[in-house]
Design a protein around this nucleic acid. Structure first.
Lengths: 163, 163
DNA sequence: TATTGTTATACTCTATAACTATA
DNA sequence: TATAGTTATAGAGTATAACAATA
């Protein structure tokens, strides 16, 4: 029995970009969810372009402006950021004067955050551009699908239904 | 005008976990998509537990078994993995005897991959557990919602509609 | 010249555990 | 003892550019 030369016959038609199937994997919610998120972010960064503030930082800044005086740990939990990493993120924002940290008298272990005037300016300068880029990155979805995506995502994240 | 003591009054009621709103951010498709993906993966890893193979590696292995003899670069593109990183991943799988690399005669620049017998055994041992964990991580969705999620994700990823 | 893959490297993200200070 | 946050560090994942071999 001759050693078969795999190389030629097995490759036919699969080398091209077209006919790649992933089988069962394509029915895995977690897998497609991840690919979708990567695709969306890739597009988002292309549209959003370079900025003086990171998305993660800007997200914290925005979330903070919606919840003035929130505790650092609570915000970290909501945004799925580990406390240890939140510390660095918050420090970076504080160093640039975008947020302020306060130690409340009633629990001096905790740190309470707020957006400074400079932080508010940063938000004004960036928010609209960000939302526009975000919507553009998902421009393949019509409004109904976009709403569907948000409803499904909320459910997966365990967030309350309506809001 | 006295310096206001922010600390006490501004914090009331926001220190708790309940009433955190993210405002406009919650209507950002990209943002909620990311939170959803993180939540799902967190849950997935909890259910899936420790394994002798990484998810990224197992994904490559599975994709490979669906596309025997696919070129390394093509697979990398589909899975959104950079070529430079794919090299390491493939090397690690080859070192463990799970896949084999071939240089096809008709294009000796390229590398063509295939799953070995050991690789197939690994798939048999892990696939079912993985799919079960995946579905469990998304157990808050009913079947219709799960199908919706996959359809939306495919669309976002730019994959063909029906399959 | 363009393409396929490799190497080396750096940078961001994320995870863990030990630590402090307060409660 | 438990909680809020910090520090240090390690690890995974990702990105970039220079490179070799082949087309």
């Amino acid at each position: 029995m001759a050693v078969r030369k795999l190389d030629e016959e097995d490759v036919e038609g699969v080398g091209g970009k077209a006919a790649v199937s992933l089988g069962e994997l394509e029915k895995s919610g977690g897998f497609v969810l991840r690919i979708a998120q990567l695709s969306a972010f890739e597009r988002f960064f292309t549209v959003f372009g370079e900025s003086e503030i990171r998305i993660s930082e800007f997200t914290v800044l925005l979330a903070l402006s919606e919840n003035p005086g929130i505790r650092q740990g609570v915000l970290a939990d909501v945004l799925k950021i580990k406390w240890s990493n939140m510390t660095k993120l918050v420090r970076a924002l504080e160093d640039r004067g975008l947020i302020a940290r306060h130690i409340p008298h009633d629990d001096r272990r905790s740190v309470v955050l707020s957006v400074t005037e400079a932080g508010k300016k940063q938000i004004d300068a960036t928010a609209e551009k960000m939302y526009r880029s975000d919507r553009e990155a998902l421009s393949m979805l019509d409004d109904a699908e976009h709403a569907q995506l948000i409803a499904l995502s909320r459910k997966i994240a365990g967030w309350p239904e309506v809001k």
